[in-house]
């Protein structure tokens, strides 16, 4: 595992929250205080893991009090494991030895398949798609290297998906100052988004003196 510590802005951007939110969680006792205080404060992987868990629990619409109660009963090691659970080594993921696997494969019994191929399109599902009529993409071909599951010539920028799925929308809290927030339901149409950007610029200019 990488030995890393983070500044407040780094921690916040890695977890997908604002620095203000981090400070709020610390004040609320949801996150431990950093190793040092002040502008040089450093946070670790445990903070990141905990922040991500809080985000997930919030996604389940749990009130903060309930989240605090759950965090209090989760051992620190489990928390860290939550933040890094994709870090298991290949050997740890494999549930049986290479020799057992080979013997089962040669005996014709389907071997236990580990979860390591998360980015690799399922080979068996892909086989029919590689027929002469199917449109070609590298992701569909078992005999191609598995790497990038999208077309190579995809443009640099793509428009957001059309707003047909209300379930996918979310409220973003944009902090204009530590005391004033703007709530925006995303995604927004492009023209509307431009106006919101304009509004944020104007508001920040207006409120600049109050920024920390």
């Amino acid at each position: 595992m990488t030995v890393t510590d983070y500044s407040l802005p780094e921690l916040a951007s890695l977890a997908g929250v604002t620095p203000r939110t981090v400070r709020y969680y610390i004040a609320q006792g949801l996150l431990p205080s950093p190793a040092r205080v002040g502008p040089g404060a450093r946070y670790g992987d445990a903070h990141l893991a905990r922040l991500r868990l809080i985000k997930q629990l919030q996604g389940e619409h749990l009130p903060l009090a309930e989240i605090r109660a759950r965090l209090a009963t989760t051992p620190a090691n489990d928390l860290l494991a939550y933040g890094s659970r994709s870090q298991t080594s290949p050997a740890a993921r494999a549930s049986e030895s290479a020799v057992d696997y080979i013997r089962r494969a040669l005996a014709g019994t389907p071997p236990v398949v580990s979860a390591l191929q998360s980015n690799v399109p399922s080979a068996s599902a892909a086989a029919p798609a590689a027929s002469a009529t199917a449109p070609f993409t590298s992701a569909l071909l078992p005999s191609m290297p598995a790497p990038v599951p999208m077309s190579l010539d995809e443009p640099d920028e793509t428009l957001p998906a059309p707003l047909t799925e209300p379930a996918r929308s979310q409220w973003d809290r944009l902090a204009l100052t530590p005391d004033i927030e703007l709530h925006v339901r995303r995604p927004l149409s492009r023209p509307l988004n431009k106006k919101v950007e304009h509004l944020i610029r104007l508001a920040r200019q207006l409120l600049e003196e109050d920024q920390p």
């Binding site: 977890a15 991500r52 890094s84 870090q87 998360s118 980015n119």
Partner: peptide, 27 residues
């Protein structure tokens, strides 16, 4: 190569190496 990133950022290897992604970490 391990990349730690916000969960809503998608990271892929354009070089043809296998990679796995979950929970804001791509290896």
């Amino acid at each position: 190569i391990e990349v730690t990133h916000p969960e809503d950022v998608r990271v892929e290897s354009l070089s043809p190496y296998r990679f796995s992604a979950s929970d804001g970490r791509t290896a």
